[in-house]
């Protein structure tokens, strides 16, 4: 039996008191490549952010290798959405990748030779070594995504969270990234990827989390990525769920 890498218990997340994730409960064994799939506004990004402690939980808990996230931070690598940063920021590609090592460095210590070596290795892994000294705005969308991936690799984590790494990237990058994720898995890492191209789910992932405000299914692709579950995930708006969430946000007395 594989150890559990990532576990969520009874987690509810609310923005402005409006619930966006209802009572999620799931468990991911180590060494899986996991796709997080669901329609827009299903709470995929929120799931990741909640797992990383970036948004507060209304209830429930998140565990990484059996312990609280705070204690296990060093085991976690994160690739945020590409739009989340200012690409005009005056840093080079290598600078950004070096940021992945900051966590291990701790306060005050500067990245030295060892860290630069790590960064160079990660750059090479994602195939953008020649671009190391470019300013990040001068890259294409796919290249920018590779930079973020390299930064996550430099974190040298056990568990990776990737938020839409395939959005706005070219086909070559997509397959390169996927190749890399496979390599990670083969070295025993667990990778969770927010994804919304349903056609590639079967090819890319061996585990899938189907999400639409609540957990529809979580399990191996063969058993969980079924038409019936997809129907449940994508089939129509959950009007009543929406209405209830809205009522909770407004807190209008019912009588």
């Amino acid at each position: 039996m594989l150890p559990t890498a990532f576990e969520i218990h009874d987690m509810t997340v609310a923005y402005n008191r409006r619930p966006v994730l209802w009572d999620i409960d799931l468990e991911i064994p180590e060494g899986k490549l996991v796709g997080i799939v669901g329609p827009n506004g299903a709470g995929k990004t929120t799931l990741i952010k909640a797992a990383l402690g970036l948004v507060p939980l209304a209830s429930g808990k998140v565990e990484i290798y059996g312990k609280n996230y705070r204690q296990q931070r060093h085991l976690v690598g994160y690739v945020p959405q590409r739009e989340s940063v200012d690409w005009d920021f005056p840093v080079t590609v290598r600078d950004v990748v070096l940021m992945g090592t900051y966590g291990q460095l701790g306060w005050f210590r500067r990245p030295g030779k060892a860290q630069r070596a790590i960064a160079d290795r990660c750059l090479q892994q994602v195939g953008i070594t020649p671009l190391a000294n470019r300013q990040i705005r001068q890259l294409s969308g796919g290249q920018q995504q590779r930079v973020f991936l390299a930064r996550a690799l430099a974190q040298d984590a056990q568990l990776y969270f990737l938020d839409e790494p395939f959005s706005g990237v070219d086909a070559a990058t997509e397959s390169a990234i996927f190749e890399l994720l496979h390599q990670l898995r083969s070295t025993g890492k667990t990778v969770l990827v927010v994804h919304h191209d349903l056609q590639t789910v079967r090819d890319y992932f061996d585990y899938v989390i189907l999400l639409n405000m609540r957990l529809v299914a979580c399990g191996p692709v063969e058993t969980s990525f079924t038409n019936e579950n997809l129907q449940m995930t994508y089939g129509g708006r959950l009007t009543i769920l929406d209405e209830a969430a809205e009522a909770m946000r407004q807190r209008e007395p019912e009588r």
């Binding site: 952010k49 402690g53 970036l54 994160y78 940021m99 306060w107 005050f108 500067r110 974190q155």
Partner: peptide, 22 residues
């Protein structure tokens, strides 16, 4: 000078910094 690394990270990508525990 002392906090250069930390300032740089927090300025560039606050979410990532927070996920690393800064």
């Amino acid at each position: 000078a002392v906090f250069f690394k930390e300032f740089k990270l927090a300025c560039f990508d606050a979410d990532f910094a927070q996920s690393q525990g800064w």
